[in-house]
């Protein structure tokens, strides 16, 4: 039983993953809702965690695993308005998830029911990783870099040093390289001139498929910053933090992407 103040937030989260994964389970316990799923080619994995404090009201008195078709849940969420409140409920036996939208002024109520699926999901354990480089930058900047370089090549090499992070690609037509300096350029109050914040233990350079990175940038509306976690010979983690309407951190959406490696 979970009440979310702005249905649009859940819609943004689902829209940011629905093109990557077909089905997933929502694992619910008293602390929140967790999802983990891989894309069909096993190159990327998405996880999200929606903490209890994302919701106005939240209760879950026993652990539940709700099998969801992503296209179907996206269709239902599209029926609500983004500033509607949304109540999610399951009944007993647990074979449907109900969505009750209420308009902000209370003049419109709509209810939809999603048939749940019996999914046998394979769960992977994601090891705790000490990443060599953690790069924080504006979502819009990361999105632009990925889209720009994708017009030139298929994969992008991210190289992080103490002073800057560079993104480069090579394609048939030529090459492209974008470099962002460590730190804030200009006024600290003006986030538009924020370049990149780099926490580094050791420089790293890894290559990734731009097709997947572009999928990940669909989460850009969740947060104004994205955090890239990189380590030698480990998958890239692209993290978007999720905030509630009181601007408190209330979960995350994380994408993992396997690197491209030398033959």
């Amino acid at each position: 039983n979970a009440l979310i103040k702005q249905a649009g937030l859940l819609k943004k989260i689902i829209d940011a993953i629905k093109d990557l994964i077909d089905e997933a389970t929502l694992d619910c316990d008293n602390d929140g809702i967790y999802l983990q799923a891989m894309d069909s080619s096993h190159v990327s994995l998405v996880t999200f965690y929606l903490k209890k404090n994302l919701f106005e009201k939240y209760s879950c008195n026993r652990n539940l695993s709700l099998g969801i078709n992503m296209t179907s849940i996206a269709k239902i969420l599209k029926c609500g308005m983004s500033d509607d409140t949304l109540l999610l409920e399951t009944n007993n036996p647990i074979d449907i998830l109900s969505f009750k939208f209420e308009s902000r002024r209370g003049h419109k109520l709509s209810q939809f029911q999603l048939r749940l699926m019996n999914l046998e999901m394979e769960r992977l354990s994601i090891p705790d990783t000490e990443y060599s480089c953690i790069i924080e930058m504006m979502c819009s900047e990361f999105s632009k870099v990925c889209h720009d370089l994708a017009t030139i090549g298929d994969s992008m090499t991210i190289t992080c040093t103490k002073k800057n992070v560079t993104f480069d690609t090579t394609g048939d037509l030529g090459t492209g390289i974008v470099s962002l300096k460590q730190g804030v350029v200009g006024s600290e109050n003006d986030e538009n001139v924020y370049a990149a914040s780099i926490k580094i233990v050791k420089p790293v350079s890894l290559s990734f498929s731009l097709r997947y990175l572009i999928y990940f940038t669909k989460a850009s509306s969740l947060s104004n910053k994205v955090i890239l976690h990189m380590g030698e010979e480990v998958p890239l983690m692209v993290e978007y933090k999720i905030f509630n309407t009181y601007e408190e951190e209330a979960g995350y959406l994380r994408y993992f992407l396997a690197p491209k490696v030398n033959e």
Binding site: S41, S44, L124, S209, A258, K260, V261
Partner: peptide
């Protein structure tokens, strides 16, 4: 040339 690795070589089944 580089080839795309898969996540199952990094993350094991839980």
């Amino acid at each position: 040339p580089k080839h795309q690795s898969t996540l199952t070589s990094f993350f094991k089944k839980a």
